[in-house]
Nucleic acid binder design. Structure first.
Length: 731
DNA sequence: TCCGGAAGGG
DNA sequence: CCCTTCCGGA
């Protein structure tokens, strides 16, 4: 199974498992919740409310009943259900919105990871654990899941490319879970299912959605999605076949495919309807999964075509693009590279700036194009409450000038990007501000300057991430070896770049994440240290594994891992040190022509964003993060981070970690980990929030995500959602 | 109401 | 692993 051979990576087993064992898998509570949230019918029972992933259980008993029905647990009640939800706290999938009754908030980043680990894997190469953080969330504002349109998925051709990947994963899931009914059947299942099925419900939703949004998009999804896609399909997408070549180094034999998993896409926001506000990122690609490659980045498009034929193959060009994209994004966001790595898809929000377009453009364009093609329309209309905000946000950020539609649909696949040009944008922005980590603070604390600046707009905070990390570590090495990629690396990674002299990114601090919540802060912070350590450990572990396993390009991963680890942890740190470059990318990149890309990136960066010099300067901090940490540390594993952390993370990038759980897994299983993986992300969520929400985050100004990406993401989400629906039941 | 430990099931 | 069930505590 694994693919390692093929790809070279090995995936963690866990990744497979779920899917693999169809029978076993049951619907998960969060899936279910999401499912309910996406249906209008249940609006009275549970609905999105508040910011980003926030939702309120309006009728706890009913929700419990529905859940019980789905799981065939007639005795279910809110108390029990809530206990289950509480378990998600540790996983960071969810957290409680304090002060609001029955109100919880999803941490999409985590979800992604969790669900779609492979993503990481891909990027990482393998290992990644769930923890990885993911995606940016931010994008949208609230999100909802929109229905996605499946259309994309369906079609083979297209599918291949992009979405497919996701889709596939989804499909898989669906397949697995799907359907069973419980005896009782309370309605829930059936209802839900129906939705899937496309029965009426969808329409209903669609209708709803449709209204809003999009044009039609919604509809399709249902149909599209079928309840289950065949696996084959999925595979195809990924590549099985196709791409043998997939990756460079390895090939994948046909079979390989890996499993991918599901991924999901979600990242971000689900956005509402309309305009697409969401941003999302790109999906992950299947490719990732397949290949070890890595993540690719952003997707700007899809570009990368990887998908195309194979999934990822990496063409140099593609790579470049992708890298660029990454870079951009990274920079833009301030995210750590890692994040990108993992979530290539993610897009960054763009700032409003017109000028910027470039970078964004491409992506968007692509997106647009795709959309057009697909037309699906994905999104739902959004309607619902919040969405509007999204729209706003979208506008702000996203839209690039050129892009045709700003909002439009999310869907899409990316594909192409070919355009290539440099997409990069030169934006400058900053991204997130992560809250600083303690370390930084303390450690460097002083430093923190907030620079302001860089970026465009906002500016605020400071951060920088950059560098730091260890810069790399491995990264560097890789690069070096690779080739001159130094440059590239730089771009991509943040810090790593340093060596190259790259730029670093600065991030601003935003206001804080907290704004939202206030945080609850639960705590974490204090803990962080430990956690971090833990994380590190994880990483370390991974590393080691990685190293053992493959080095292949993975090495990168490994390297990355190292880096990351540090990053990861942290909350703050994360930010700080962005991550090392993604391994996968780099390598590829390097080998090929990355240079060009790199250059672009660099240039872009340099030019706009930060100056390298500055960057460099900034970097100084990094050390703290990176170096300091080291990797090793004992594992502890658990921590409880909670929401607040998450927020931070998100905001900052998340990175990481996972909590307790993960660590164990990691160890146990072994994942390889290499790569680094984890990612961080940004806080998109919060950032996004701004659009909508009040709270705003600093992000607004700063980040923006490319719409396209977001859309994608959203699209993915939709899909995912759809899939979820499908899943239902099994009791 | 919410939280989380503990035990247990599939 | 992912809850489900029970339960004491805040």
């Amino acid at each position: 199974m694994k693919t390692p051979g093929d790809t070279g990576f090995a995936f963690p087993e866990w990744a497979y498992k779920p899917e693999s064992s169809p029978g076993s898998r049951q619907i998960q509570l969060w899936h279910f919740i999401l499912e309910l949230l996406r249906k209008e019918e249940y609006h009275d029972v549970i609905a999105w409310q508040g910011d980003y992933g926030e939702f309120v259980i309006k009728d706890p008993d009913e929700v419990a009943r529905l859940w019980g029905a789905r799981k065939c647990k007639p005795q279910m009640n809110y108390d029990k259900l809530s206990r289950a939800l509480r378990y998600y706290y540790n996983k960071r999938i969810l957290h409680k919105t304090k002060g609001k009754r029955f109100t919880y908030k999803f941490n999409f980043n985590k979800l992604v990871l969790v669900n779609y680990p492979f993503i990481d894997m891909g990027s990482t190469g393998s290992s990644v654990p769930q923890s990885a953080p993911p995606v940016p969330t931010g994008a949208g504002t609230h999100f909802r899941f929109p229905p996605s349109t499946p259309s994309e998925v369906l079609s083979p051709n297209e599918d291949l490319r992009s979405p497919g990947g996701m889709f596939s994963t989804v499909a898989r899931r669906m397949a697995r879970g799907s359907v069973s009914d419980c005896s009782d059947g309370t309605s829930v299942n059936s209802e839900i299912e129906e939705g899937n099925g496309g029965t009426g419900e969808e329409r209903g939703e669609r209708g709803v959605g449709g209204g809003g949004g999009g044009p039609g998009g919604g509809g399709s999804y249902r149909s599209i999605i079928h309840p289950r896609l065949s696996h084959e399909t999925l595979f195809r997408m990924y590549g099985g076949p196709g791409n043998p070549a997939a990756h460079p180094g390895s090939r994948g034999p046909s079979g390989h495919r890996i499993h991918q998993e599901p991924l999901s896409p979600f990242p971000v926001s689900p956005l509402p309807g309309p305009p697409g506000a969401s941003l999302l990122a790109p999906p992950l690609s299947p490719a990732l999964s397949m290949t070890p490659t890595s993540h690719l980045p952003y997707t700007p498009s899809p570009t990368l075509s990887p998908m195309l034929g194979s999934h990822f193959s990496f063409n140099p060009e593609d790579m470049k693009r992708y890298l660029q994209a990454h870079t951009q994004s990274v920079y833009n966001y301030g995210l750590s590279p890692r994040a990108f790595l993992q979530y290539p898809n993610i897009v960054i929000p763009q700032p409003h700036r017109p000028a910027a377009d470039k970078a964004g453009l491409t992506a968007e364009r692509a997106a647009a194009a795709e959309r057009a093609e697909r037309a699906g329309g994905g999104e739902r209309a959004g309607d619902r409450h919040h969405h509007p905000s999204l729209a706003h946000s979208a506008h702000h950020h996203t839209q690039p000038p050129h892009s045709a539609h700003p909002h439009s649909h999310p869907m899409h696949h990316p594909l192409h990007l070919g355009e290539e040009p440099p997409h990069m944008s030169p934006f400058k922005f900053k991204l997130q501000p992560p809250p600083l980590g303690r370390k930084q603070r303390e450690g460097q604390g002083q430093s923190k300057p907030r620079q302001s600046s860089l970026s465009s707009g906002s500016g605020s905070g400071s951060m920088s991430s950059t560098s730091g990390l260890g810069s790399s570590l491995s990264f560097g090495s890789d690069l070096s070896s690779a080739s001159g990629s130094g440059v590239i690396s730089a771009s991509s990674s943040t810090q790593s770049l340093n060596s190259a002299g790259l730029p670093k990114i600065k991030v601003e601090p935003i206001s804080d994440i907290e704004s939202e919540e206030e945080v609850e802060v639960t705590d974490i912070s204090d803990e962080d240290p430990d956690e971090r350590d833990n994380e590190f450990e994880l990483f370390s572990l991974r590393h080691s594994r990685v190293s053992n396993h493959h080095h292949h390009h993975l090495s990168n991963g490994a390297a990355a891992a190292q880096h990351q680890p540090q990053d990861e942890d942290l909350d703050e740190d994360v930010f700080k040190a962005p991550a090392p470059p993604p391994p996968g990318l780099m390598p590829f990149f390097t080998s090929h022509h990355a240079h060009a890309a790199a250059h672009r990136a660099l240039t872009a960066l340099k030019s706009e964003p930060v100056d390298p010099a500055e960057a460099n300067a900034t970097p100084s901090q990094p050390p703290a993060a990176g170096a300091s940490q080291g990797k090793c540390i004992p594992l502890k594993l658990r921590f409880k981070r909670r929401w607040s952390e998450d927020q931070r993370m998100e905001a900052s990038q998340e990175e990481s970690d996972d909590k307790k759980v993960r660590p164990e897994e990691a160890r146990g299983k072994e994942r390889q980990s290499n790569g680094c993986v984890e990612m961080e992300e940004d806080g998109a969520g919060s950032g996004e929030g701004d659009a909508e929400s009040p709270p705003p985050l600093a992000y607004e100004g700063s980040l923006t995500v490319p719409v396209a990406s977001h859309r994608r993401v959203s699209a993915e989400l939709h899909r995912a959602t759809a899939q979820l629906s499908l899943e239902n039941k099994d009791c």
